[in-house]
């Protein structure tokens, strides 16, 4: 049994981590590790960067092809896709789906939460996209939190 089957929380060993270079241009991190019959991410990707053998396969992102556009973030029914982009030596942008109220505004200071729901740092909201009912929020956090932050508390 995998650890996440007991905890509901992935570790970095469960997901593919992009290289420094790939992170600099911004790429989609898909935290979908089980074979479930679902394919909207692969179907919507404008550059065919997400591959799936069949509808039950685990989606694999080609980090070199991925442009970090974030179309998959809002379509994913499992809210399991994030875009991570490092901006300089100390900061990173994390784009995540957010389905709660209040909807944050650009410039808001919010708390950054990790996969366990624990506060792991501060974040600043830099972009808010309303696509359907799933709001897609981009926050700026410390670079070392880029692969930890997966939620915010407004």
């Amino acid at each position: 049994m995998n650890g996440y089957e007991k905890t509901g929380v992935l570790s970095l060993n469960d997901i593919r981590v992009p290289s420094e270079n790939q992170l600099r241009k911004g790429v989609a991190i898909i935290e979908c590790v089980q074979e479930i019959p679902c394919n909207p991410c692969a179907a919507i990707c404008p550059v065919n960067a997400i591959s799936m053998k069949d509808i039950n396969s685990i989606p694999i992102v080609d980090f070199d092809k991925c442009t970090g556009c974030g179309k998959c973030v809002s379509i994913c029914p499992g809210l399991a896709i994030f875009v991570v982009k490092t901006v300089d030596n100390s900061k990173a942008l994390v784009t995540l789906p957010y389905e709660f109220l209040p909807i944050p505004k650009t410039g808001d200071k919010v708390k950054a939460l990790n996969r366990w729901g624990e506060i792991c740092g501060d974040a600043e909201v830099v972009r808010v996209n309303m696509l359907g009912k799933t709001t897609v929020v981009t926050i700026r956090v410390d670079k070392k939190l880029a692969m930890e932050v997966r939620n915010i508390r407004v």
Binding site: M1, K6, G8, V9, C32, Q34, I36, L113, R115, G117
Partner: peptide, 23 residues
């Protein structure tokens, strides 16, 4: 059961909001 039987992605949504799951 000793494991979460629903999809991991559903469990992850809950966990990152701070809700514990006791298997």
């Amino acid at each position: 059961l000793p494991r979460i039987t629903g999809y991991h992605v559903h469990a992850a949504k809950l966990r990152r909001c701070g809700v514990p799951i006791y298997t």
